[in-house]
């Protein structure tokens, strides 16, 4: 039989959508694996039940009316219905217990190797790697690095509306609610870049509120953390030097922090190492000098409604500031 090309292509699209770095059925982290097991278990049980019901239905339609007396038929019926109700109770209880154990397994362990605070904001993720020593505390945005094979405790907070933290390949979904702190266990079993997305409609740019979770071996993670803790690198090239001067003089510095310079605003993302991140504007664009310039020149066209204003800059200032941003590795 010839398959219609539309069905064929949509099947491919659907299947390929399940294998990427943002997929609950292609889990790469312990909590996500537990959830995937629960999911496939429940699907298998429900499929079996559905098939049984269908078989029974067909059999009931096709069978001849039995010759047994009224009383015998009534007795048979009572037995069947009681058995079915009993089976239903057992199956639902089984699924409840399975779901209870899964929830327990994905809960926060007493001691996590690393605790990160993720604060949802319209429309980006503020990521704080807090340390008892304030000098070792650092911040990043829309990019979370975690060591492979370690339990990471993520504390979820929100400053404005309800957001939801969801990295399908690594863990379940958890809401970020203003005024309270929620917790989530994140653990990657394999190194990789996993994409996450805000999963609770949070306003105009909900679509463009993505993050990257980068799982790497503990040594690379430690190297990365040491680099992030450091102040921003001093710009070397003349255009980046001029860009730094313009950045501090313009309203940029009122909202953004670049550690090691007078720029200490806290409204927008910390830009101390913005050039080292994979994406800008919460997964909107890849970090390149061109995309940085495009973003700075006209943020309201690329992501309408976001809180970054269009700062009037001359073309030379724009060129220099984007060179400076790119140099902040």
């Amino acid at each position: 039989m010839r398959m219609s090309p539309i069905i064929w292509m949509s099947t491919i699209a659907i299947i390929s959508g399940c294998t990427g770095n943002q997929s609950a059925i292609n889990p790469k982290g312990a909590p996500a694996i537990h959830i995937a097991h629960l999911m496939s278990g429940i699907v298998a049980v429900c499929t079996l039940v559905w098939l049984l019901v269908m078989v029974m239905l067909v059999w009931a339609l096709l069978r001849k009316r039995s010759d047994a007396g009224e009383q015998a038929r009534e007795r048979g019926l009572t037995t069947t219905v009681s058995a079915a109700v009993g089976a239903t109770a057992v199956i639902i209880a089984g699924m409840t217990i399975a779901s209870f154990y899964t929830t327990r397994d994905i809960g926060i362990p007493g001691e996590a190797a690393l605790t990160i605070t993720v604060r949802g904001q319209q429309w980006w993720w503020q990521v704080i790697y807090a340390d008892p020593d304030p000098a070792l505390t650092f911040q990043t945005a829309n990019e979370i690095h975690i060591p492979v094979g370690r339990d990471v405790h993520v504390q979820l907070e929100s400053t404005d509306v309800v957001h939801s933290f969801w990295v399908p390949s690594l863990a379940g979904k958890q809401d970020l609610v203003p005024g309270r702190t929620n917790s989530l266990l994140l653990r990657a079993e394999r190194p990789g870049i996993y994409r996450g997305q805000c999963a609770e409609f949070c306003g105009l740019q909900h679509t463009h509120m993505a993050m990257m979770v980068i799982a790497e071996d503990p040594e690379s993670f430690e190297r990365w953390a040491v680099a992030q803790r450091g102040n921003s690198v001093n710009p070397g090239k003349p255009d980046a030097v001029a860009g730094q001067v313009a950045f501090i003089a313009k309203p940029c510095a009122a909202c953004h922090t670049v550690r090691g310079t007078p720029a200490m605003g806290t409204t927008g993302p910390d830009l101390t190492h913005v050039g080292s991140r994979k994406t800008i504007a919460a997964g909107l664009l890849e970090t390149t000098r061109g995309s940085l310039a495009a973003w700075i020149a006209d943020p309201q066209t690329l992501k309408p409604g976001n809180n970054m204003p269009m700062v009037p800059l001359t073309s030379v200032e724009l060129k220099n500031i984007s060179a400076y941003m790119e140099s902040l590795k």
């Binding site: 003089a249 313009k250 309203p251 510095a253 009122a254 204003p309 269009m310």
Partner: peptide, 8 residues
């Protein structure tokens, strides 16, 4: 003047 845009 130097911390906000005129629209803000």
């Amino acid at each position: 003047r130097d911390r906000m845009t005129i629209e803000q």
